[in-house]
Amino acid sequence: MFRNITIGQYIPGDSVVHKLDPRIKIIITFIFIVAIFFINKLSGYIFAVLYLYLVIAISKTPFSYILKGLRPVIIILLLTVSLNMFFTPGGTVLYTLGPLKVTTSGLRLAVFMGLRLIFLIIGTSLLTLTTSPISLTDGIEHILKPFSRIGVPAHELAMMMTIALRFIPTLIEETEKIMKAQMARGADFESGNIVKRAKGLVPLLVPLFISAFRRADELAVAMESRCYRGGQNRTRMKQLKIQPRDYEALAVTLIMVLLIVWNRVWTW
C-alpha cells in the first residue's frame, strides 16, 4: 500500500538516459524546469512535450509509472488550478458562480500553472526514475562542492540524503511488517473516525520509532568502526567522468531551450 509512491523510485535500465552522468542529468532537469516556466504560449509546450517524449522513449520508462508519479500531487494541482482560475483579476468575465468569477486571464493563468506543474513533476520523476539514488546523491554532492568554501556542508548533506534514501525502503518494509503483526492481533488501521484511527497508530508508531533508533545506532557504530570521519580527503571508488553522450544530451536540451526562446520571442 505504500509501494505506489513513485517519486524517488528508481527503475533499473541500461538506456543512454540511465547512463548519463548524474551531474549532467541534474543540470538538464534544472534547465528543463526553467524552460517550462519561460514558455508563455500554448504552442511553446509542443517542444516540451516532444522533448519529454524523446526522453521517455529512449529510457523506455513505462508510461504508467509517470502517471503514478502524478497521482500524489493531484490535490495540489487542482488547488493551484482553481485558485488561479477564480482569483485572478482582469480580462473579461466568462462565468460567475456566486462571489467567484472566472475571467479570461484567470483561465489562461490556470491552464499555464496546471501545465507547468504537470511538466515539472514529470520532468523530476523522470530524473529519479532513471537515476539510482546513489548516483543521484553523488551528483548532488559534486554540484554542491564548489559551495563548500562558503560553508555548505556538501559531503554531509549528500551522506544524509544517501542514508535517508537507503532507509526509506527498509522503513516501508518494517511498517508493513509491524502493521501485519498488529493486524494479526486484531488491530484495525482502516475503520473508525479520526480520533480512533490516530489512537490506532500507536501500536504501529512505537515499534517503528524504537527500531528506527536502534538502526540509527547500529549504523553509527558500523560507520565509526570503519573509521568514517566525514568527507575530508575521502576518495571514491567510482569517479564521475563526462562522456561524449553527456555533451550530446546537453546539446539536445539546449536545442529545446532555443526553440522555446524562439517561440516566445518571434512567434505567437
Binding site: I178, A181, A184, R185, P203, P207, I210
Partner: peptide, 8 residues
C-alpha cells in the same frame, strides 16, 4: 511473526 518482540 518472526522476531515478534519488535511488535511490543
Amino acid at each position: 511473526f518472526q522476531y515478534p518482540e519488535y511488535q511490543l
